[in-house]
Design a protein around this nucleic acid. Sequence first.
DNA 1: GATGAATGAGCGTTCATTCAT
DNA 2: AATGAATGAACGCTCATTCAT
Lengths: 217, 217, 217, 217
Amino acid sequence: MFKKLTDEEIQIILEAGIAEFAENGPDKANMHTIAKKSGVSVGVLYKYYASKDDFFEACLRLCLAELNRVIAEVLACDDKILVRAEKLIRALQKSAKEHSGYHVLYHEITAGSCKKYARAFAKEIESISSGAYRAFLMQAQAEGVIRKDADPRLFAFFFDNLLMMLQFSYSCDYYKERFQIYCDDGVFSDDERVVGELLKFLESAFTVERSQISHRG
Amino acid sequence: MFKKLTDEEIQIILEAGIAEFAENGPDKANMHTIAKKSGVSVGVLYKYYASKDDFFEACLRLCLAELNRVIAEVLACDDKILVRAEKLIRALQKSAKEHSGYHVLYHEITAGSCKKYARAFAKEIESISSGAYRAFLMQAQAEGVIRKDADPRLFAFFFDNLLMMLQFSYSCDYYKERFQIYCDDGVFSDDERVVGELLKFLESAFTVERSQISHRG
Amino acid sequence: MFKKLTDEEIQIILEAGIAEFAENGPDKANMHTIAKKSGVSVGVLYKYYASKDDFFEACLRLCLAELNRVIAEVLACDDKILVRAEKLIRALQKSAKEHSGYHVLYHEITAGSCKKYARAFAKEIESISSGAYRAFLMQAQAEGVIRKDADPRLFAFFFDNLLMMLQFSYSCDYYKERFQIYCDDGVFSDDERVVGELLKFLESAFTVERSQISHRG
Amino acid sequence: MFKKLTDEEIQIILEAGIAEFAENGPDKANMHTIAKKSGVSVGVLYKYYASKDDFFEACLRLCLAELNRVIAEVLACDDKILVRAEKLIRALQKSAKEHSGYHVLYHEITAGSCKKYARAFAKEIESISSGAYRAFLMQAQAEGVIRKDADPRLFAFFFDNLLMMLQFSYSCDYYKERFQIYCDDGVFSDDERVVGELLKFLESAFTVERSQISHRG
DNA sequence: GATGAATGAGCGTTCATTCAT
DNA sequence: AATGAATGAACGCTCATTCAT
C-alpha cells in the first residue's frame, strides 16, 4: 500500500490502542501488540506517531472527544437542571457500559503513570464541563430552583465528582468491584435504580433551602 | 549498617517506596531508585520483600492501614450523621494534604496498572467503609433524621464517592488541577469553604423529604 | 542487517553459543558475550530462542545431531563388527579433534548443571546407539564371531563406554590432560597408535572363548 | 563458640558442600544453603575458605582423597591382575552407590564449569592410578598372563576408562539413565551381573594372544 | 512508502562476599 | 571470635524505537 492511511484505518489503530491501553495500562501496553491487533506494522505506528507516549495521547484525545461529545449532546438542549442531570447520568451510564475502554483511558490520565498529561489535559477537558455545570447551576439559582446559598463552583464540582465516579463505576475494574460491594451484585442490571437514587440524591442536594445544622460553632 | 533493620528504617524504605510509586506509578517506579532514596542497597529490598510487586503491596498496605485508621478514628465516636460527615471531610482533607503519597497510592489501585490488586483489595478495603456508612445512614433513617425514601446502599455509595473525590482532589495531580479549575486557585488555602459547601451539599442531599420531580415518566 | 537471519547466520550464532557453553559451562556462559561474539544483539538471541535455557538446548541439539550423523554414517554400511568398530573409532577421533566444542557440550549434559536435561536427553540419544550396538553384537554372536557367553547389552555398554571416553579424551580439557598422563604427550599426534591399541583391546574382549577365571566363588 | 572448628565440624561442612555441589553443580550451588545445612554461618565458611571456588576445591579434595583411598586399599594387596580388577570393580560399584556425591563431584571436575582445576587436578589424581595400572599390567605381561603385544599405557587407559564410566554409571544422573537404557531397569539391583560381565570383557581383552584381524591393510 | 527484524539501554533479581556488631 | 545483614556487581530478559530492505 503506497497511500496515506485513511481515517477509518487511523480509527482502527486508535481503537486497538485504546483497548490495549485500557487493558494493560499505559506502561505495560505493548506497541507490537497494538500494531498486530490493528493489522499494521510498527513502522506505520511510528510514522504517524512520534512515540508510544505520543500515540497514547492520540488515543486519549479520541476518548475525550467522544466523552465530550456525549456530554455536549446532552447539554445542547435547554432543559431544566434535573432533567439535564438525568440525561447526563443516563448518557454516561450507557457510554461507560458500552465503551468502557474510553472511560478507563480517561481514568488513566488521573493516575500517576500519566503525570505528563495531568496539567494540560485537565485544563483542556475539565474547563468545559466545569464551565457548563457552573453556568446552569447559576441559572437555576437565578430562577430560584436551587438553593441560593450554594457556591455554584463547588456545587458544580460535587456534581461532576458524582458523575465521574459513576462513569468509572461502570467501566474501571476496581470501581466496578467497589460498586458491587456498596450496592450489590445486581447493580449492573438495574440501571434505573441507580439513576433514580442518584437523581433523588442530587435533587435534594440542590433544592434544600434551610440549613439545619450550623457547622463550625 | 550491619544490624537488622529497625522498624523505623523499614518505615523509611516504605516511605521512599510510596513516594516513588506515587511519583511514577507502579510500572515506571524503579527499585534501584527506591533503594538509593532510602539509603539501602537493592539487596536489602529483596531481603525484606520477595519482589517489586510484593514491595508495592507492602507500600500499599501501609497507606491503606493509615487511611483506614483515619476513617476508623472518626467513626469510633457516636456522633450524629452530619457531625460524622464533617469530621470525615476534615480528616481526609488534612490527611490528603499532609500525606498525599498515601492517597495517590490508593488511587493507583483503581488504575489499570494494578489490575492484579483490583479484586482482592476492593473487597478488603471498601467493605469496611461501605458497611459503616450504610449502617449509620440506616440508623439516621430510623431516627427520622434523613429521608425515608433513600436507598441506604446507594446513598452510602454516593457519599463515599464524594469523599473519595475529595481526597484525590487534595492529593493526585490531575484531580488537584481539576479542583482548581472547578473552583479557583484559592481552594487549597481555603479549606473551610470546601468543608462548608460539601456539608451543605450533603446536608440537603440527606435531609429533603419531598420529591419534586418524578423520574421515569 | 535488517533482513531475517539466514540459516548460515543462525549457524554462526549457534556455533558461538556452543563455543561459549563449551568454554564456560551452561551457567557461567553469558548471553551478552554470545551475542557479541556472533555479531548480533541480545535481542536477536531472544527473538529466535525463548530463553538462555532454550538457546542452550538448541546448541545441544545441533551438537547431538552432528554426533549422531557421524555415528549413523558409520553404522549405515554393513561391515563386520571390528571394521565397524575401527570406523567408529576413527570417526569419533576425527570429529572430537575437529569439533571439540560439540563433544564438550555433549559432555556437559552428563554433568550436574544440566540436571534438567539428563532424563529426556539420555532417552533420546543413548537409545539409538544402545540399540545399534546391541544389534550388531547379537548378529556377530549369531555368526560365531564373538564369544557366545557375552551379554550383548552389557558388552554394548562397555563398548560405548570406551567410545565415549575416547571422544571426551580428544575434546574435554580434563580428559585430554588425563589422556596425556596415561599415555604420553605424544598421543594427540599419533592417532594410529590409539586406534591400533583400542582395536586390539576390543578385538580380544569380543573374541575370547574360554573363561579362565571363575568369578563369584 | 570461641574455638577453632573441630575436624568433625569441618567434615560436616564439607559433606554439606559436597551434597550441595553434587546436587546443583558448582555454579548453582549456594553458599548460604551450604552454611545453613551444615549449621554454621557464612562468615565461618569464609573464615576457613577464601572463596566459593576455594571451598569447592576443598570439597573436591575430600572426595578425591576418599576415592583414592578406596582404590589404594585394593591395590595394596598383591593380587593377580583379574582379582585386582574384580576388587576394584566391586569397590567402585559399592562406593559409587553409597557415596554418589563424591563421584558426582569427581565428575564435575571433568566438566567445563571447573576448567580452572582441570590441569592441576588431572596431574594430581590420574597420575596415581595411571602409574599403578600401568605397573601391574607390565608385571602381568612379564608374567605372561596378558598379551605381549599390548601397550601397557593405552591398555591401562582403556581399563581406567571402563572403571570411570562404571562409577559414573552408578552415581551421576545422566549416566545412570544411560546405564538403564543400555542394560535394563534391573541393572541397579543385580550388581553381580555387571561385575561378571565386565570381568569377562576385561579378561578377554587382556588375555587374547592371537590377532585375528589385521587392521590397516 | 511500508515492513518488521534488529538494536541495546534499562530493569528486576540474585548471591558471593564483606564487615559492623 | 562468630554472626548474618548488607552490599552491589552482574546477568537474564524486554520492548520502544530505528532503519535497511
